[in-house]
């Protein structure tokens, strides 16, 4: 083999770079995500109606696609009402509908997004619900 030294050095560097995601994360096992749906609005709903617009499995797998479709339907076509597979109507709005129930963005959205290391930039424009740390909030209330 000509230039063996250079080739092997090159290969080592290449393999090092390619496996970067593996070895850079060694020992930093991420905690299994545990999204919460215990928001006040959801808890006020009767047990039977505590359902998202579509079945949970579909929402888990397709919510990003659904949000994209909603976005185009509302902004580009002016369609703002969504009739779900169960026949219920919803207002297609991230801020006004989705986040009305899921007002706990940190424990609902961010929990999995951080785990999967995806960074959707919805919130550079859309205003996230005002969340107060529960404990801190309670103590402020008590003190006042």
């Amino acid at each position: 083999m000509y230039d063996g030294g250079k080739i092997i050095t090159g290969l080592v560097v290449f393999i090092g770079l390619v496996t970067f995601p593996l070895w850079s994360n060694v020992g930093k096992a991420a905690k299994k995500p545990d999204p919460k749906i215990d928001t006040p609005v959801i808890q006020q709903l009767p047990e039977k109606e505590r359902k998202c617009i579509e079945p949970k499995a579909l929402m888990q797998a397709e919510h990003m696609k659904i949000l994209n479709d909603w976005r185009d339907a509302v902004v580009r076509d002016g369609n703002r009402i969504y009739v779900s597979s169960s026949g219920k109507s919803f207002n297609m709005s991230l801020q006004k509908e989705c986040m009305n129930c899921h007002s706990n963005k940190k424990k609902f959205c961010d929990e999995c997004h951080n785990y999967a290391d995806v960074k959707p930039y919805c919130w550079t424009c859309h205003i996230e619900p005002k969340e107060k740390e529960k404990v801190a909030w309670a103590s402020i209330e008590e003190n006042s």
Partner: peptide
């Protein structure tokens, strides 16, 4: 296929 069918969306009737 899109998970949301076009027929499932409509304008707000109050619009």
């Amino acid at each position: 296929r899109a998970p949301v069918e076009a027929s499932q969306v409509s304008p707000n009737p109050k619009a």
